[in-house]
Structures are given as C-alpha cells and as structure tokens.
Design a protein around this nucleic acid. Structure first.
Lengths: 117, 117
DNA sequence: TACCGATATGTCGAGTGGTGCATAACCAAA
DNA sequence: TTTGGTTATGCACCACTCGACATATCGGTA
C-alpha cells in the first residue's frame, strides 16, 4: 500500500453563489497583503491576473464587504491593499483553516491510518 | 450580509495519483452496499455508470485493495458487493468524515460567525 | 441454447473553468 | 504632457471532466 496524504478544500457559500470565500481567495488576500498589488499577488500565486481579479471581485460582491482598497495610476502604476475588514477576514479564515487542518490530521491518525499499513 | 454555510471536500492522495479515495468514492461504495450493483448505485447517485465504473477501478488500483467483489451474468445479469475490506474502508471513512464535519461546524462558530453578522 | 440484465471499455461531444491576449482607463512623476 | 506600470474587462481558445452512446462479454435460468 502506498503512503497516503490527506487533502481537503474548504469554502463558504451563500444561497445564490457557491464559491463566496475559500482557500483560493484566502491565499489571494494574503498575497495581496504581502505583495502590495493584485498583479504581484497573482504572479506569486501563479494564477492569471484575469482570474485573480475575477475572484477578488466575486468575493467582495458576495460578501458585500470591501476587502481591499485599490488605486490606479501613480509612479508604480497602482496598488492594492487590504482594508481592516480584509485583514479580519484573512486572520479569521487562517484560524478557521488551521483548526480544520489539525482536525483532518488527527482524524486521519484515528480512523484511516490503521487501514493503510 | 447573506447567510453563509460551510463547504468542504475531503480526499486522500498518493504520490502518483490525486483522487485515490474521497467523498465521491465513499458515497459510491456506500450505495453499492445498499443497492447491490454498480449500475443501481450509479443510478441512485445520479452519476453515469461510466464514471462510477471508472472511479471504482481507480480506487481499487490506487489503494491496491479489493474493495468490491463483482459478478457478471446470472439471473439478474450481475452484481457488485463490498468485500470485508471495502466495508472497513466505508466505515473508517464515515467516521473520518464525520469528525471533520463536526470540526468544520465548530470552527465556523468559533472563527467566522462573528464576521458575518 | 437463447435470453436478459449487469459488468467492461472505448470514443466523442458538451460544459466548465482558467489562460492568454487585446485594449481601456487611470494618475503620480518626470 | 508624455510615460510607465497597474487596475479593469471582454473574448477567444484550451485542457479537463463528465455524460451519452455504442458495443462486447459474461453466465444463471427458462
């Protein structure tokens, strides 16, 4: 039997939209925070700017919360930064996801591991 | 703010295959157990027989474990039933998944809920 | 032995989500 | 006022997945 590892995807959905917020958008926001722009964030995540931009738009529309503050023009061409609410979401989701990750590892040890050896 | 619900997908992967075992294959095995055939199971899950058959093959190949015992011919044309090992996998994964589900709900209450109101 | 219904497996087309490209709009600084 | 780099947005294309078909095989039972 090959060695196995657990995988999971986590997200939030509303009644009318499925991917409101989840791992992808969480990573995107985190990278926007460290990189300072949407373009740089998408690049460091190796996803297209087109997708990153669409994801961000969707998250903000669905949550109806301003997660980032964007600026066009200027010496660097523009920038994107997290708002206070954006930071709160990142932090909350980080803790949320971390709890799940631990639970997955624990549950694997408890229920699956014995089957795999 | 709209009401949100948590969503997650869970699966196991090996070094050379991604979807070794997960929610979909777990549901398939459960239905095979109750329905008695791969055809009936795929029908009750509303997935094509083609997909169910492929999924099952993949799971058995990747895990290298005989999860089901199949029979062709006979008065009913054939049948598929879980082996002892298949049942063990179903039961273990059921508990595994249940633990995660609880953890997700709990973590949502703890970390996310306050952001959404 | 003919039949029936399930397993077994390849193939092609539709739908989906993402990438790449093209093109505006924007604006601080030179 | 020109420039440069970023945000903003539509669109065509591409890869991947899944479903729908089309067959072939199998083997108790009538």
């Amino acid at each position: 039997m090959k060695k196995l590892r657990t995988r999971f995807k986590l997200w939030l959905s509303s009644k009318d939209a499925e991917g409101v917020f989840g791992d992808g958008k969480w990573r995107l926001l985190k990278n926007i925070d460290t990189e300072g722009s949407l373009k740089a964030a998408s690049h460091s995540l190796r996803i297209s700017y087109r997708k990153a931009w669409g994801d961000l738009k969707k998250a903000q529309q669905c949550l109806n919360v301003p997660l980032v503050e964007k600026q066009r023009g200027g010496i660097q061409g523009g920038r994107t930064a997290l708002t206070e609410q954006g930071k709160k979401w990142v932090n909350a989701y980080t803790r949320f996801r971390s709890d799940i990750e631990k639970a997955v590892d624990k549950a694997y040890e408890k229920h699956i591991k014995e089957l795999v050896k």
